[in-house]
Amino acid sequence: MSRNSARPAAPVIILYDLKSASPQPWAPNIWRIRFILNYKRLRYRTVWVEFPDVEATLRAIGAPPSSMRSDGRPIYTLPVVVDPTRNFAAPQILANTNNIAEYLEASYPARPVFPDGTRALQTLFVHYIQEVFAKPLLPIMVPLSHQSLPARSQSHFRPGTPGYAAPQAFSTLPPGPQREQAWLAVKDQFDFLSVILDKNVGDGDGTVACGHEVSYADFALCSVLIWIQRMAPQDGWMRIRDWNDGRWVRLWDRCKLYMDEY
C-alpha cells in the first residue's frame, strides 16, 4: 500500500433521526440519545429518514421493532442506533430510546449518565417526563411539529391520502382560547416539577435532578425544552423562559454544552 493511500475511515455510531424542514433536530425522544452520545464524547453520524420511510428503512437494516401492537404486529419508530465500532461485521442495532440509553451506558461507561444508585429513580423520573409531564404539550406541539415536516411526511398524516397514519387533530392547532387553556395545563406540570426539584436545594444546586451533575433525567427534560424551543420559539419558549424564576433557562444552560456533536 502506498504511503499516500487513504486509510479506511474508522467506523462510527449511526443515529437514525427524523427528517424535517428544519436543519436542526427536534424530536425529544431522539434528543435524549443525542445528549448521551455528546456527553460521552462518542463519534457518530446522523441518517435522516422521512416518516413514510421509517418502517421500510429500519426493516432493511435489520432493526428490531421498538414495540408491538396489541395484535402482535411490530411498531417501528426512531431513534435507532447502529454501533459497528466493536464488531464491524456484526454491528449492534438497537431500537427504543430507553434500550439505547441502557446500551450506551453499559458499553461506554466513561462519563456515566446514571450515577451510582440513581438508575431506578432516574428511570421513574424519565417515565414521568414522557407519560405525564409532556402530555399537556401534545395538543400544541404535535400540530406544530407536523407543520415543520417535509411535504411528503405531512401527507403521511393527512386524512384521505395513502398511508394515512393519524387522526385529524394531529395536524390541527387548537383555536386561541383552547390553546391558552392548554398552556395553563402545561404550566401546572412545570410548576409541580419545579416544587419537586426545589427539594434538592441544599443537597444539590436545585437545577439538576441528581444533585450537582447533569444526568439522563436532565437530558430527558431538556429534550422537551428543545422541542418547544425549536417548534414554538415565540408562543412556547418565550413563556417558559420566565416560569419558575428562570429555572428552565438555567437547566438549558447546564445542558447546552452537550447539544453539539463531540
Rank of each mutant, 00 (worst) to 15 (best):
S148V: 03
S148E: 12
L149H: 09
S153V: 01
F157P: 03
R158N: 04
G160F: 09
T161R: 13
T161V: 09
P162L: 03
P162V: 03
A166L: 10
A166R: 13
Q168F: 06
T172S: 13
L173H: 09
P174E: 12
G176R: 14
Q178C: 12
Q181A: 15
Q181D: 11
A182P: 10
A185T: 12
D188P: 00
D188G: 06
Q189K: 14
L193D: 03
L193F: 14
L193T: 07
D198K: 15
D198W: 08
D198Y: 07
N200Y: 04
D203P: 05
G204Q: 06
D205S: 08
C210G: 05
H212E: 14
E213G: 10
V214L: 09
S215Y: 05
Y216F: 14
Y216I: 00
D218V: 07
D218Y: 10
A220F: 07
I228N: 12
Q229A: 12
P233V: 06
Q234N: 12
D235W: 00
D235T: 06
G236M: 01
W237E: 05
R239L: 09
I240C: 03
R241S: 15
D242S: 12
W243C: 06
R247P: 00
W248V: 02
W248G: 01
D253I: 04
D253G: 02
C255A: 07
L257N: 06
Y258I: 00
D260T: 14
